[in-house]
């Protein structure tokens, strides 16, 4: 196992300079999610108009993998329909377990492929995506 397989430059960039970190107005769909086994937590907010995610923002605390994954996710879902966002979340969970799926909707996310070699860290990467799934379910 090589550290560089896991902590790629793109991941560290998202960790250090998270995109869409912050909160939205009150009418946004809001999801709070914890990872009870490790203490990571995220608040995800989605601004949805006509079934399309116009904006996604997050706050939270966690490791580099969970926070960079959240940052990437908020970029990837922008301007996607709720159905597309949900499909992306499904695809991500297969991708992160190392199944043979390409994540071509967003090239940064491909950098998380190394997580599958670190089974203990998969749950870190999926936290934000589980929040997304909940948010979409709340909205629909």
């Amino acid at each position: 196992m090589q550290l560089d397989d896991l902590y790629r430059r793109v991941i560290m960039d998202h960790y250090k300079n998270p995109r869409n970190r912050g909160t939205l107005e009150e009418d946004a769909v809001t999801v709070n999610l914890n990872n009870p086994t490790c203490g990571d937590r995220i608040q995800l907010q989605l601004q949805v108009e006509d079934g399309v995610v116009k904006q996604a923002k997050f706050t939270g605390e966690g490791c580099s993998i969970s926070m960079s994954s959240a940052s990437m996710m908020t970029e990837a879902v922008k301007d996607r329909t709720l159905a597309e966002a949900l499909a992306m979340a499904e695809k991500f969970s297969a991708f992160i377990k190392g199944e043979d799926v390409e994540f071509d909707e967003n090239e940064d996310i491909e950098a998380l492929s190394g997580v599958s070699k670190f089974p203990a860290r998969i749950k870190c990467a999926t936290l934000a995506w589980n929040a997304l799934r909940k948010g979409v379910e709340q909205q629909s």
Binding site: M1, L3, L6, C38, G39, G62, I65, S66
Partner: peptide, 25 residues
């Protein structure tokens, strides 16, 4: 450096430590 990241770095060097809330939130 988040404790999970510390634990992963240590694990790649054969060192097992605990990271998390230790069942004491």
């Amino acid at each position: 450096v988040h404790p999970h990241d510390v634990a992963t770095v240590l694990d790649t060097r054969g060192i097992a430590i605990r990271a998390g809330h230790h069942c004491a939130q």
